[in-house]
Simulated assay, not measured.
Amino acid sequence: MNTFTYGAALALLVSTPVLAGDLVTPVMEQPVMMADQAPAPAWTGGYVGGNISYGFGSLDANDEAASFLSDEGFSDNLSEPDGVSAALRAGYDWQFGRGVFGLGAEYNFGSYDGDGEGILADSGVEVEIQDMATIFARGGYLVQDNFLAYGLLGYSKAKGEVSLDGDSLSEDLDGVTIGFGGEYMFTQNWTGYAEYSYTDFGDVDNTEGLLEADLQQIKFGVNYRF
């Protein structure tokens, strides 16, 4: 009887590791840490759109003309054309991670108008900046996947016109445009934007450097992207 008892106990001890080896140890799944993902290139593609703008410019005397007006007690400012206008815009963007680079063009088919200022006040002179066309490059950063903050650099050309008693004289204006803005993507196809730009037309053609002009614009627009 004792021999049987000892034998059974020995067999139980020998088999215990084998039984223990058959037990399935539960595996704890570790949480998967997701690395930051770059946004999908939703901004790559072409677009067409338009904007409404408020513009305010300046026509000023320069060099000898400015000195003469100053000596006579007048400001060098001759006119401040302003007003509300509208433009059409088209372009193409490329997205690289959170960066966006694009090329575009805009045509403003309205005008900004002003009366004479300073020595020209109450003279009946009217000044217009009209038919402004701009080509530009822009670069920006996606603050959010659907919001782009950007800056732009371009070249603009417009027509400046001075009228008095039914007679008018027009000259070409051209210069560098700089600006900044933000564009928000409402859907994959529709975006809205707000933008500020400044154009330095420099010297007015055929005035021997005696006149210069510039223009600032605040724009609100929409684009259809495809």
Rank of each mutant, 00 (worst) to 15 (best):
T3L: 13
T3N: 08
T5Q: 09
T5D: 10
T5I: 11
Y6M: 10
A9V: 07
L10R: 14
L10W: 04
A11Y: 09
L13K: 13
V14T: 14
S15R: 11
T16N: 06
A20P: 03
G21S: 13
G21N: 11
G21Y: 05
G21Q: 11
V27N: 05
E29C: 03
V32Y: 05
M34W: 02
A35E: 08
A35S: 08
D36P: 00
D36A: 13
A38G: 02
A42D: 04
A42Y: 02
W43M: 05
W43P: 00
T44S: 14
T44Q: 02
V48F: 15
G49Q: 06
G50Y: 12
N51T: 03
Y54A: 02
E64Q: 11
A65F: 10
S67F: 09
F68I: 04
L69M: 09
G73Q: 09
G73L: 08
F74Y: 15
S75E: 02
N77Q: 14
L78C: 06
G83H: 08
S85L: 06
L88M: 13
L88E: 01
L88Y: 10
L88F: 15
A90H: 01
Y92E: 03
Q95T: 08
F96A: 14
G99R: 00
G102N: 04
G102V: 04
G102C: 06
L103C: 06
L103V: 15
G104K: 10
E106F: 03
Y107V: 14
D113K: 15
G114K: 08
D115N: 13
G116F: 05
G118N: 09
G118I: 11
L120F: 11
L120R: 08
S123D: 02
S123H: 01
G124V: 10
E126D: 10
Q130T: 08
D131F: 02
A137I: 15
A137S: 10
G140F: 03
Y141D: 01
Y141P: 03
L142K: 07
N146R: 15
F147A: 14
F147V: 15
F147H: 02
G154P: 02
Y155N: 07
S156C: 09
K157V: 14
K157M: 14
A158Q: 04
A158E: 02
A158D: 01
K159Y: 01
K159C: 03
G160V: 04
E161T: 15
V162M: 13
L164R: 11
G166P: 02
G166V: 12
L169P: 00
L169Y: 11
E171Y: 05
D172Y: 06
G175L: 02
V176S: 03
T177A: 10
I178D: 02
G181A: 12
E183P: 14
M185R: 15
F186I: 14
T187H: 09
T187Q: 11
N189C: 00
N189S: 13
W190C: 05
T191Y: 11
A194Y: 01
S197D: 04
Y198I: 00
Y198W: 10
Y198Q: 00
Y198E: 00
Y198P: 00
D200R: 09
D200I: 07
G202T: 04
G202I: 04
G202Y: 08
N206F: 12
L211I: 14
E212I: 07
A213T: 11
L215N: 03
Q217Y: 06
F220L: 15
G221V: 07
R225C: 09
F226I: 03
